[in-house]
Design a protein around this nucleic acid. Structure first.
Lengths: 188, 188
DNA sequence: GATGTGATGTCAGTCCGTGACATCACGGTA
DNA sequence: TACCGTGATGTCACGGACTGACATCACATC
């Protein structure tokens, strides 16, 4: 028998989401999370830089999905096409199997300003990565930044809908809709 | 003679920016700020909800400038025109006399992730206000949100340029340039 | 069986942020 | 003149987030 149960990190994440849902983010202490996951507070901080971060692990895969989209686009793609490619690629990340979890997580985030801050920081970070990737595809400043921002704006709008809406619409569909809205806007 | 020197809040803000510049945000304690401003730590927290907030006071006027722009636009303005109106109105907020201060402040913010988070939260809040204002002008969802986001994206890009750039270009000019870039993008 | 390693525990301490209560100049008011 | 209410501040005590330093000990490896 191992000295420690494996999967400590995953256990901490699940436990934290549970407790945040039950009592609220602010009313839950790190000590409580650690106790229910059967480790000490110190161990929590070895896996997560701070209390909020426990809800934001795995960003990396998510970011990679956007970048892969840009990387996989044809050489002569226009900025708008690169944006669509990134969104299309990222869409694959949010299948139905993640919806319930995403919903629970998003409900918690919505209740706490500090968590919303962290979410925005993550999006801003992704915006920076996207901007760099677009620049490397030959899109000059400040255009690269504007394209990156509007790409994430579309993502954000579609994501919120996906969370709120009934199960009838898939994430890729919602992204398509939102993109169509943005295109219509440009012509208005 | 008054029992307390007036202008406690302003003194705290100036002192904080000073100390953050000298030693960094993280290395400066609230107790130090309070001491140099000749009050107690407790008094600091009576004026500012938390340590970061001391750099973000006055948001309200800033937000109002955007909303006034929307409010003052003609009844038949298109979404794009409303966006431009908001930006134009907000531009008035950043005259040359504020550039040095804005620069010092932005330099501090750039060094600390927590401060960047707070800045993003403020922008997101403004985005929400703008979205509501646009909705009230008859722009439906999700269009209202997309217009609000792209408006703030333009603002953000122009603002960064204004901070970084030499004194040769005014903020309104930079906003115009950035808007032109965005329009060009929509046509590409 | 000695030795090293990595995940964890233990402990002490700093700083942030808050609630409760005390102080005291000042501006009225009797 | 003496009293009273008010508002900005001070004092104190405390809980919770986070960190650095050091101890522990099952397991792998030689």
């Amino acid at each position: 028998m191992a000295r420690w149960e494996p999967g400590t990190k995953e256990r901490l994440q699940a436990t934290a989401l549970e407790l945040f849902g039950e009592h609220g983010f602010d009313e839950t202490t790190v000590a409580q999370i650690a106790a229910r996951a059967e480790v000490t507070e110190r161990t929590f901080y070895r896996y997560f830089a701070d209390k909020r971060e426990v809800l934001f692990d795995g960003q990396h895969h998510f970011e990679q999905a956007f970048l892969d989209g840009v990387g996989g686009a044809p050489d002569d793609a226009t900025p708008t096409e690169l944006s669509a490619a990134a969104l299309h690629s990222a869409s694959g990340f949010f299948g139905e199997e993640r919806r319930a979890w995403a919903r629970a997580r998003q409900e918690v985030i919505a209740t706490d300003a500090g968590l919303r801050e962290r979410e925005l920081l993550k999006l801003a970070h992704l915006s920076g990565l996207l901007t760099t990737a677009l620049r490397e595809r030959g899109i000059p400043d400040p255009r690269a930044g504007l394209v990156a921002d509007s790409t994430l704006s579309v993502f954000h709008v579609a994501f919120q809908q996906w969370i709120v809406t009934a199960e009838t619409r898939t994430f890729p569909e919602l992204v398509e809709d939102t993109l169509a809205h943005l295109r219509a806007l440009a012509l208005g």
